[in-house]
Amino acid sequence: MNKESIQLHVNGVRHEIEIPPSKTLLEALREDLRLTGTKCGCDDSSCGCCTVLVDGVPMLSCVMLAASYPDASITTIEGVAQGEQLDPLQEGFCVEGGAQCGFCTPGIILTAKALLDRNPKPTREEIAQAISGNLCRCTGYTQIYASIEYAIKKLRTTPVAAASGGR
């Protein structure tokens, strides 16, 4: 298969990789950049596990051709924490038990992050709407809502965390 040199800008780092143009962003992230936090669930755009942020907007990396996005700034779950300092959303999932098997968690955290960047005080209904494309088969969603609401509260009470949330 023909390979081409392709640029990807992921979590603030520029990469140049040799891949076939038919490779999806999900495959490039996992196989070429070894960023395996982004999960492959259905591989058919039905489950949301592979959600990444593209210029801050949640998109499904399983239906994106990596070669289509050389100019975009991509954020994966590996780029959410500030070094050892967890993002308030990650902290919320730890404290409130938002992750059980954990497979949907990276996609939900990124989707929620984009929501909070746009709307720092969403209602539970708005949260449910925003993550409605992210399937979780373990939690029944209650703890996920609680985890996101933990982050909302933390971002409201600690302005420092709020500032780092807008990356």
């Binding site: 755009s45 949301g48 949640p58 998109m59 499904l60 989707t111 709407q129 409605s132 494309g133």
Partner: peptide
Amino acid sequence: VASPVLRNM
């Protein structure tokens, strides 16, 4: 249409 994340694309 579809889900919010698919509508972004």
